[in-house]
């Protein structure tokens, strides 16, 4: 069995203690290969956001295990010294809204991550330009964020998520504000990028338009995940 980009087993998250304790995640198991894009679907309150926060290392799980590219990063406690570096170097984030930094231009929004990782500015900007070219927004490289369309902003956000070549990208309803055509374009881009950069992408979504595009879907209900084969419909 090839090494998974991300592997989660027996993940639990309990908020509070004693009588007031709420078990948001009871038993989460996932395994996603490099270059694979999977959907994560579930009703409100099912634990999607909690799972995303645990995988994004912004909330500490209560128990279980998380491995990135075979390396254990969480096993009943974080196994990495610098959580911030873990988020910066090994996890990419794409949000419902692009949440680009408005005071940086397009290139520097993408280059900021490699710069934070200590790479020289020139090298970080070259990497950003490569990604912007791959995502077909290189012509807006010097533009301010406010000058971009919604679709362009989302592409820049995807470029930013890929900037440090993380093994995992967490996409939280990335197509929610987009119409069908643009939503499918974003999913197509995510699939292309996953293939090109061998990154595993988890797309949390309610969007009926894009659900048929996933080859594999994880349903989450009452804090438990259930795997299902998707339609994997062509774009």
């Amino acid at each position: 069995m090839p090494q998974a980009a991300i592997e989660i087993s027996g993940l639990r998250k309990v908020y509070g203690q004693g009588d007031t304790a709420v078990e948001a995640l009871k038993e989460v198991n996932m395994r996603i290969q490099p270059g694979e894009v999977v959907g994560l679907i579930g009703p409100s309150g099912s634990g999607k956001s909690t799972l995303l926060k645990c995988l994004g290392a912004v909330t500490e799980p209560t128990a279980g295990e998380i491995r990135f590219n075979g390396e254990t990063v969480y096993a009943n406690g974080w196994r990495v010294g610098d959580i911030r570096a873990l988020r910066r170097d090994r996890i990419g984030f794409v949000f419902q809204a692009p949440y680009l930094i408005p005071f940086l231009d397009v290139t520097d929004n993408v280059a900021l991550l490699p710069m934070l990782a200590g790479r020289p500015n020139a090298e970080a900007r070259a990497r950003a330009l490569d990604l912007l070219t791959a995502l077909d927004v290189a012509h807006r490289a010097r533009a301010q964020v406010s000058q971009l369309s919604g679709g362009e902003q989302q592409r820049v956000a995807i470029a930013r998520a890929l900037a440090n070549q993380p093994p995992v990208i967490l996409a939280d309803e990335p197509t929610a504000p987009l119409d069908s055509e643009r939503a499918l374009t974003v999913v197509r881009i995510l699939n292309q990028m996953a293939q090109q950069y061998r990154t595993a992408i988890i797309v949390v979504t309610h969007d009926e338009k894009i659900i048929p595009t996933f080859r594999r879907i994880y349903h989450i209900r009452d804090g438990r995940t259930y795997e299902e084969a998707g339609e994997g419909r062509a774009f």
Partner: peptide, 16 residues
């Protein structure tokens, strides 16, 4: 606040 949250999420140090 939102930009700061994003900056922190993508790994910006507190001192930065």
């Amino acid at each position: 606040v939102r930009e700061i949250a994003v900056l922190k999420l993508i790994g910006t140090r507190n001192r930065t």
